[in-house]
């Protein structure tokens, strides 16, 4: 393999891994496990209220007898989880922020993966051909 390609792979790897520090309340994958503490089935719904001023979308999920609730597929934003009881009362959980990785960083890792995968296919194909 050309040394320039090795260098390029190394750079891609470093780019993909750089700058990932996030605070404890930030999630970077759009999913989170919330402690709803609903063993006694007191609450019937979990609502995520986006904290942006002009937000019109809320995310609502049914709750059953469960301690934890796993929610996923959330876009970027600050969210205030609220538990809604059958009698109409509510309880707020600690807010959290979803901030997905920058696309260039994910793309860097994707290209790195593609390059290594193609290298593997070509290597196996060449060895197999020479063996045959």
């Amino acid at each position: 393999m050309n040394p320039r390609i090795i260098y390029m792979l190394l750079v891609l790897l470093l780019i993909a891994l750089s700058g990932n520090s996030v605070s404890a309340t930030q999630v970077r994958e759009g999913y989170i496990s919330l402690n709803v503490n609903n063993k006694n089935s007191m609450y019937e719904r979990l609502t995520l209220l986006p904290k942006q001023h002009n937000a019109v979308i809320t995310y609502t999920y049914p709750l059953h007898q469960q301690d934890l609730a796993f929610v996923s597929g959330l876009p970027d934003g600050e969210y205030q989880p609220v538990l809604q009881a059958k009698d109409g009362s509510t309880q707020s959980l600690p807010p959290f922020t979803v901030k997905h990785y920058p696309l260039w960083q994910a793309g860097g890792l994707f290209i790195l993966g593609l390059a290594v995968f193609v290298a593997l296919l070509v290597t196996l194909f060449n060895y197999q051909r020479s063996e045959d």
Binding site: A16, G30, L74, L103, F110, G113, L114, F117
Partner: peptide
């Protein structure tokens, strides 16, 4: 339902998922 409640699951430019793809291959 997915578009309304879990929109990122349908997003083909979902960053963490893009990272995951080749990881799982290897």
């Amino acid at each position: 339902e997915l578009s309304a409640r879990q929109p990122e699951l349908l997003n083909l430019l979902f960053p963490a998922a893009i990272m995951f793809f080749f990881n799982n291959v290897f």
